[in-house]
Amino acid sequence: MTAATSNAPSREEQVKALQKREARRRRLPLLPALIFTILITQIPFVMSLYYSFTDWTVTPPSPRTWTGISNYTDAFTNSFFREAAVTSIVMTVSSVLLSVILGTGVALLLDRKFFGQGFVRTLIITPFLVMPVVAGLVWKNQMFSAAFGVINWLLEAVGLEAVEFASKYPRWSIVAVLVWQWTPFMMLIILAGLQGQPASVLEAAKVDGATPRATFFQITLPHLRPYLELGVLLGSIYLIQVFDHIVVMTGGGPGSTNVPYFVNQRSIGGGWRFGSASAFSILVVIATIFIATFGLRVLSGLLEGEEP
């Protein structure tokens, strides 16, 4: 391994060379994934950024002209966009919060030994696995429908009037389906948190005479915090991008067009105005960056002190 010739490099140089080679060897397996990800995710983003400063209609083809920030100023005065932005915020926040709260409740229910525990958990995670378009269609046509929907059948059974939910309350119908699909996800994360809680701590609380309520608020909830944060973070990232449910449930009906759907309408979905649509999408990115900065902070808190 080492040649003991007189003009051999010094030990220090040898060690340095070895460490360098080691560092290169460690980087190598990372590169394909890293390069691929940079190519596919960063280039389109930069192109979007560029388009957003231009006026450009793809069909019928029009020349691309530089317009500076006018797309952005237009966006803020465009009442349709403002409405879409509000819808995005309301839908994301309400569906994330509701599914976290419900998910916590369900997780607490499942964090007990009872007959059929695993089976019940399996039933509850099912909605998360359902294809979003299918979830939207099933709820719209078979749960919410005034004519054949199960919910309306129940309402009528107790003497209330049937409601065509998806067209009367488009935004909240979508939120309901999102909550149905995401509560299981939140439940799983929180359940993992509950089960990671050392039993000895709970026993100590019991010995100290804490009531179940005090134990929950003063011990369990603080312990769950990172799990709740992770749930909120992952949920927000996905739910701000909701598209499928809107297409199949309301087609963007009143109060249910969020920004992604709006961008689609203005571009590939028929408007073909790629310039202004890009500006709208960049605004979503900026909004997401707010969530992401918060999110990265959470994640770095999680990774802190962890050795690879």
């Binding site: 391994m1 080492t2 003991a4 030990r11 220090e12 040898q14 060690v15 070895l18 460490q19």
Partner: peptide, 22 residues
């Protein structure tokens, strides 16, 4: 572990930079 300075010998053979399997 890397040896930053000095040497290690097994049977008079300098193994300071040798990988474990050698």
């Amino acid at each position: 572990e890397f040896v930053n300075d000095g040497s290690i010998f097994i049977n008079d053979k300098d193994v300071t930079l040798a990988p474990p399997q050698d």
